[in-house]
Design a binder for these strands. Structure first.
Lengths: 199, 199
DNA sequence: ACATTTATCCCCTAAAAAGGGGATTTTTTA
DNA sequence: TAAAAAATCCCCTTTTTAGGGGATAAATGT
């Protein structure tokens, strides 16, 4: 019997997953949580074999929650769940100790396949269906930070003031972003940032 | 017994809704569809009391589907479902004949409340929780068109060439957008456009 | 038919971003 | 610890956008 725990802030997704899983004889949903805090609370005195974990939680990012859970309960397998088909999260969750990655609009059979795969000790990282050329670029921490501020509408000057560097530096980061993401202007940068959930 | 039909392209949402509803004694899920076409197919020879309808379907917009269903089966009540808390869709669905609007991360009790409300012949339009000042602005068709092109990274010159007007005109639209949306630059415009699913 | 909105176009100046170039120091990682 | 990567800073020019102003024709709604 595979014990599954679900953490996601959307009641419908939780219900949907539960239903899909309850029909299976070898799987048991041992608990659900709607935020990172109560998920961590559960794992203080309980455990599970697999966690289906939303990447976008209200109180904490799935990346952080993933690391924390794996630190406390290393044996538990984590399957990251998200709506967004972004390589960035894929990579980050992998680095944070997750065993697999699923899109939220996945089918029941894929979900079960993923659970069985990670329980067998393997990983479940399906490649992206239509990964564009930009999906394998790696942005540095600073670049992501600057990109987020650009996307919020700050000018180079404002960003410089905010992160305590000169405008030249912000400008450099901006140029690197444009070149890495093959974007030709701010609009294209913001477009990328939002599609990839950087902000 | 209230007959409910669900149309949404996300298996999990469909499952989630079904589960929530199956626990209720006075509600019956009579069918589901994962796209507009099969939804229309169902209503050729069957019917329902309420349709829970996703606004973003793969083959057709919920707005169009809503109009078509209401034209064919006027008695059916349509509850629009979406992830996005945007006034634009709220308004459009209302105009297209929907009886109510629900966010996808709604709770079971709200969902039931909405279904009962529309079945009783009333409408269910809950106001937005944190509607910002920009949510009641109305953009013209041309402004939306220009905003979409801006968001895709085109310059005024490129947009002008594309829609066959002068750069001055595009510039005017851009200025109106900035002023209407209280945005101070392109980044803020794109941010708005994407949050509001204009592109 | 009349008022309102929408779409179109133009002027001007200042600010910001894009597109080149290069260089140094700090941090990370192999 | 040496090499690679990241972060910092500066020069230059051109293009694009922002912020004012205003004006006219076409479409829309009442």
């Amino acid at each position: 019997m595979i014990r599954v725990f679900i953490v996601d802030d959307h009641p419908m997704v939780v219900e949907g997953l539960s239903t899909m899983l309850q029909n299976m004889t070898d799987i048991e949903v041992v608990g659900v949580a709607y935020n990172a805090k109560s998920c961590l609370g559960y794992f203080v005195s309980n455990t599970a074999d697999v966690i289906l974990m939303d990447i976008n939680l209200p109180d904490k990012s799935g990346i952080d929650l993933c690391m924390e859970i794996k630190r406390r309960v290393p044996v538990v397998k984590i399957l990251a769940l998200t709506n967004f088909e972004q390589r960035i999260y894929w990579e980050k969750m992998k680095q944070s100790g997750a065993s697999g990655y699923l899109l939220k609009n996945t089918s029941a059979s894929e979900l079960l396949d993923a659970i069985h795969t990670v329980c067998a000790g393997e990983e479940y990282w399906k490649d992206f269906p239509r990964g564009d050329s930009k999906s394998n670029v790696v942005l540095t921490r600073r670049e992501v930070e600057v990109l987020a501020l650009i996307s919020e509408g700050l000018t180079n000057q404002e960003i410089a003031d905010k992160i305590f560097v000169s405008t030249s530096t912000v400008d450099s980061h901006r140029k690197n972003l444009l070149s890495k993401l093959q974007a030709k202007n701010t609009a294209a940068l913001v477009n990328y940032a939002m599609k990839n959930k950087i902000i």
